[in-house]
Design a protein around this nucleic acid. Structure first.
Lengths: 248, 248
DNA sequence: CGCGTAGTTGATGAAAATCAAATGTGGTGG
DNA sequence: CCACCACATTTGATTTTCATCAACTACGCG
């Protein structure tokens, strides 16, 4: 069979995860970017109209005409796809800075809903196109964005196809932890605004299995469940081991 | 829970699949494209140096320095990721026209190997960058390419997370069928140059389960196994039904 | 305060993995 | 050309993991 390289890159991946892509990590509090020069700060920071979406309401649905792309300003957005009989796969949880709605063929290929009440910037497709005409750098930036998303998607494929329930859960928590640490360095706590069902549908499990998994991690003293849907990652190294490699 | 839209788009998706993206469907036999005008034919068709890769040899490996992108000219390439203990997830099967090697953070995030002896065009990263400088349209084209890949990746997540073994197999065959039909309209036969193990690792199954699945589909007269690793899709509609929606 | 929903825990079942063996198949060398 | 070998595939028996079914608990909200 195939050559099995064992030199895996444990720390190599600049984690971004969750089929989310942030075109601007270096987000300035409120953009002052106006120029058309090749600026490093995000050219999309202030573009588009603000839209608020209540908890559990849809931003758009699978199959809708994909007339706009969105960028999360605040809150959390969940992306999912459905099978005809209702089985659901959550393909991403998005947070501030992440983009959604890029599509091919003119239709959205997933449904986007607010996990928590969220605000987004809506950018009509034509607006995005004209922006890319004006600033060729934008297309390159979005290309990076999409590439990052694809990396996350492939990590998730590995998770869904080959990891056990415990490994999936550990991976999920580690990924959330890295996210949290990126915002608040050194932070060991992660927020879980999404329901057990959401987590289950993201990891290809059932709510019961997710719940049992949390209980087991708690019993093993790897995590602590705090009030307010928070989790403390007590032993991140053990979790990372359990996650099997580069998390994802 | 979330609003469950039942209006799924069965036929809506312009299938591309397999985490492969073809930047040029409209490939001319040998490009005569030299100008820097916004041409519609593929600006990458003749760029880069040709490289041949023997069966089961690696094009590059996960963790390698990502100094080049590649484009498949002929043959089939398999992309995979590994867990530390050797569990493998195949994240894509690529054919002529498909691109591989785009990465973030400077390292390849999967291993690329030849399923069959293949030829590829190698394009150094700097060359690609300078090409994008010269032709802003190229970045947009690649953006479409990546978006298409991402759609395929999300379909695969749905498959891996929520489909049964039979559904996975049916989805796989339907997807291959659409590919084959795109090349040879009306064709009901698909080639399976990859091994059962490859298919299993692509679908998140074992070889035994894949084999049993094929046997069952054969017994149900939905497919016929031909010599030379070919399969005839006898009842594509039944297969599509079994695949559950838009294939993927 | 009590209802409804979300989450946890327990018992059982089913799908697919694992273990094991038989059958094919392609390639090599006699 | 045929025999043989190595390996891929198929088939069968058993085990395991996780899903399903069911009940109970906790929490939020009117």
């Amino acid at each position: 069979m195939a050559a099995q390289l064992t030199t895996l890159t444990r720390t190599a991946q600049p984690f971004r995860g969750f089929i989310a892509a942030s075109a601007a990590r270096e987000l300035s509090p409120a953009g002052t970017t106006l120029g058309a020069r090749p600026v490093e700060s995000d050219p999309l920071a202030t573009v588009g109209t603000l839209r608020c979406v209540e908890r559990d309401m849809a931003v758009f649905s699978e199959g809708d005409d994909a007339d706009s792309v969105y960028r999360v300003v605040d809150g959390m957005i969940r992306l999912h796809k459905l099978l005809p009989d209702g089985r659901r796969q959550v393909v991403g949880f998005l947070q501030a800075g992440d983009m959604l709605g890029l599509s091919v063929g003119g239709l959205y290929i997933y449904t986007a809903e607010a996990v928590t009440t969220s605000s987004l910037r809506r950018i009509p497709r034509e607006r995005l196109d004209s922006l890319m005409d004006e600033q060729p750098a934008l297309a390159r930036k979005l290309l990076t964005t999409m590439t990052t998303e694809l990396v996350a998607a492939q990590d998730q494929m590995l998770l869904l196809g080959r990891k056990t329930a415990a490994e999936k859960l550990a991976s999920f928590l580690i990924a959330l932890g890295k996210r949290a640490a990126a915002r608040t360095p050194g932070c060991r706590r992660v927020e879980l605004p999404m329901s057990r069902t959401d987590i289950a549908d993201y990891l290809g499990l059932t709510t019961e299995t997710v719940s049992r998994g949390f209980t087991k991690l708690k019993t093993a003293r790897l995590i602590r469940l705090l009030e307010g849907n928070r989790v403390e990652l007590v032993d991140q190294d053990a979790l990372a081991d359990m996650a099997g490699c580069c998390c994802g």
